[in-house]
Amino acid sequence: MTVTVRDLRPDARADLEGFARVRRAALPFILVTPESLAHDLTHLHPDAHYRPLVAVDDEGEVIGTAQVHLTHESTVAGQGNLNVYVHPRHTRRGAGTVLVRAAEEHLAAHGAARLFAWVLDEPGNRAFAELHGYRESRSAHFLRLDLAHGTLPPPQDPPPGVELRPGSDYADDPRPLFLLDAETTADEPSDVDTEFTDYEAWLRETWQHPLFSPELTTVALVDGRPAAFSAARTDGGTRYGTVMTGTARAHRGRGLAKLAKNDSLHRARAAGLTEAFTGNDTGNGPMIAINTWFGYEICGTEVRYVRELG
């Protein structure tokens, strides 16, 4: 069998659908749709040199995918990312190897000196990464909550001086949420430091993303100013994902993130969503404890692998 690698294009509907199908089969904990893929292709910052790839078999079926880009928001230059996933029915056919090779060549051509890849915590996947020269780094959990049949903690009334509002209330001016997102993201555990400084890029990549749900996003205000939030995505069906939950530094330790997320989850269930997903660095004990309190259970683990080029 011959495996061919080609670029994913926003106008190639069959490849977009194939990419989404492979990702859902290999990594069912992350929301992805053909529309979200097309949006990323046309709206990610040019400095990311974003280049998603598909591996196609002799019959034209997409059997593998790669998301490839530079971390242009990092304070350290030359850091690249490649996340390769092959459909579970089509492993050991060479698709992963040709995708890795094409991804590494692209990143090296754009100045990447250190490469990061998330790998599912399974023996075959780990061995594949190590065979290609990658070394183990940090890890993260995927967590799932059964919204349809699980028992959420009861809704909580905010304390005096705190107000809960949907993110959609900021449709006319989302900048306060950008500033809150930038502050909380900067403090997340990670191998790579990031700084959100480009408001227009954040609008395109986050606020206007087709999966983002400002209606189900909850913001906790203290004395009228955003202090914590839980940002929600949906796939247009029954699946909900929390992509960021955090609190401004000046307001941490008051339970505001838990308050915001509880409100978002209750509104998601009321809207008919049945599954909730999130992810946490394995070292982020406080957030894992919060999600356990909600009833989330670990459903998968990824390991970050790193390779130095040159």
Rank of each mutant, 00 (worst) to 15 (best):
residue 257 A to W: 04
residue 195 E to C: 09
residue 142 F to L: 06
residue 92 R to N: 01
residue 259 L to E: 07
residue 203 L to H: 00
residue 178 F to G: 00
residue 82 L to W: 12
residue 111 G to F: 02
residue 295 G to H: 02
residue 86 V to R: 09
residue 220 A to T: 03
residue 303 V to K: 07
residue 307 R to I: 06
residue 287 M to F: 09
residue 157 D to L: 09
residue 205 E to T: 12
residue 223 D to Y: 08
residue 262 N to D: 01
residue 243 V to G: 13
residue 135 R to D: 13
residue 247 T to G: 09
residue 125 N to G: 13
residue 278 T to R: 00
residue 29 F to P: 02
residue 26 A to L: 12
residue 39 H to K: 14
residue 119 V to P: 00
residue 11 D to Q: 13
residue 143 L to D: 03
residue 50 Y to P: 07
residue 291 N to I: 01
residue 218 T to L: 10
residue 283 G to H: 04
residue 204 R to P: 04
residue 222 V to W: 09
residue 169 D to L: 10
residue 190 S to V: 05
residue 304 R to N: 11
residue 237 G to N: 15
residue 72 H to I: 01
residue 85 Y to R: 15
residue 174 P to Q: 03
residue 40 D to Q: 14
residue 89 R to P: 05
residue 56 V to R: 01
residue 165 R to T: 15
residue 293 W to E: 05
residue 67 Q to W: 11
residue 15 D to S: 02
residue 180 L to E: 10
residue 292 T to R: 13
residue 200 E to V: 14
residue 101 R to Q: 14
residue 36 S to I: 06
residue 137 S to Y: 03
residue 275 E to Q: 15
residue 106 H to C: 02
residue 148 A to S: 08
residue 228 A to T: 06
residue 204 R to T: 05
residue 120 L to Q: 12
residue 25 A to Q: 02
residue 61 E to P: 00
residue 248 A to I: 07
residue 48 A to P: 11
residue 67 Q to A: 15
residue 172 D to G: 10
residue 187 D to G: 04
residue 73 E to G: 05
residue 170 Y to D: 03
residue 222 V to I: 03
residue 44 L to K: 14
residue 256 L to D: 02
residue 223 D to N: 12
residue 234 T to R: 07
residue 247 T to S: 08
residue 20 A to D: 10
residue 264 S to Y: 09
residue 177 L to Y: 06
residue 96 G to H: 05
residue 40 D to F: 04
residue 82 L to Y: 11
residue 196 F to S: 08
residue 211 L to W: 11
residue 227 A to L: 14
residue 276 A to I: 00
residue 194 T to M: 15
residue 245 T to E: 12
residue 42 T to C: 07
residue 292 T to V: 05
residue 248 A to C: 07
residue 122 E to Y: 09
residue 39 H to T: 07
residue 289 A to N: 00
residue 256 L to M: 04
residue 149 H to W: 14
residue 187 D to T: 08
residue 241 G to L: 13
residue 197 T to D: 14
residue 266 H to M: 08
residue 144 R to Y: 10
residue 239 R to F: 03
residue 287 M to R: 07
residue 210 P to H: 04
residue 75 T to H: 13
residue 252 R to G: 12
residue 179 L to V: 10
residue 72 H to L: 06
